[in-house]
Amino acid sequence: MISLQGVTYSYPGTSSPALRDLSLEIPRGQFCAVIGPNGAGKTTLAYILAGFIPHFYHGSLQGEVNVEGKNAATMPQRELLRLVGLILQNPFNQISGTKVTVQDEIAFGLENLGIPREEMVARVAAAMELVGVSELAERSPLGLSGGQMQRVAIASVLVMQPAILVLDEPTSQLDPVGSREVFQAVREMASSGQMTVIMIEHKVEWVAAFADRAIALVDGALLADGEPRHVLAIDTVWRAGVGQTRYTLAARRLQELGKWQDGKRLPVTLDEATLTFKAFQKRR
């Protein structure tokens, strides 16, 4: 369970807050996507949840952040890292750079935590299986493609079994197949009820297809919060610069042409679009 109450944060040396009076509750086992244009405060939210704010980036933090019932701002970083796993955008920067094989790379975090070898071997094998990198076990992590490297980075954090997984645009360097694999793996983790997932993502079609909930941030403030198919159909969300699925955009075009029934909800997913446009065609 994650709870934010009236959180406002400004980076050192800045006058404008990166997050403004943000209040949220995310229950355990939920797959929650955070969407919004660049500069909306998404990465700042990820850093707050992972404890890098205020432990690494100081600045001014107001409000309360609770992770699994404990105050994240006052909890020592060593405790927080066992609760929250963070995956960043650039997969290359997440590779430790000291390991020769993928399996050694995935074990790096467990070595640091002092986990016994037998347990490490089992956990590394399970993490590789989960994200589909078992066949890369003996490859060099620095010799992989961007997509493979990102999946190794995900496995490297998953292997530490955090209660909460925060992913900051993990598919930004992946092709559609790689993106789908990451979303599917994350969906499965959340569905198992073992892990809460917060994923910052611009690929709204995948968000609509896989996430339980979408939180739209604009200028550091909460703009909309709810089921992805509702949030992504909201006019103000679209006007604030949040991406739209191709189905919603097609419907918006029809709206502009005056061919959309007033008050009818815009389709967001492929299934909704199929039903909506079939009905639209019949009416014509």
Binding site: A50, F52, F56, Q77, R78, L81, G85, L86, L88, N90, F92, N93, Q94, S96, G97, Q103, D104, A107, F108, G109, L110, E111, N112, L113, G114, I115, P116, R117, M120, V121, V124, A153, S156, V157, M160
Partner: peptide, 26 residues
């Protein structure tokens, strides 16, 4: 920029975690 991101990434993986470390390889 990379150095900062790399520092965060290894921190998330317990690089400065106190206590004895173990080894995956013998």
């Amino acid at each position: 920029i990379d150095v900062e991101e790399r520092a965060l990434a290894i921190e998330v993986r317990g690089f400065n975690y106190p206590g004895p470390k173990t080894s995956y390889r013998e």
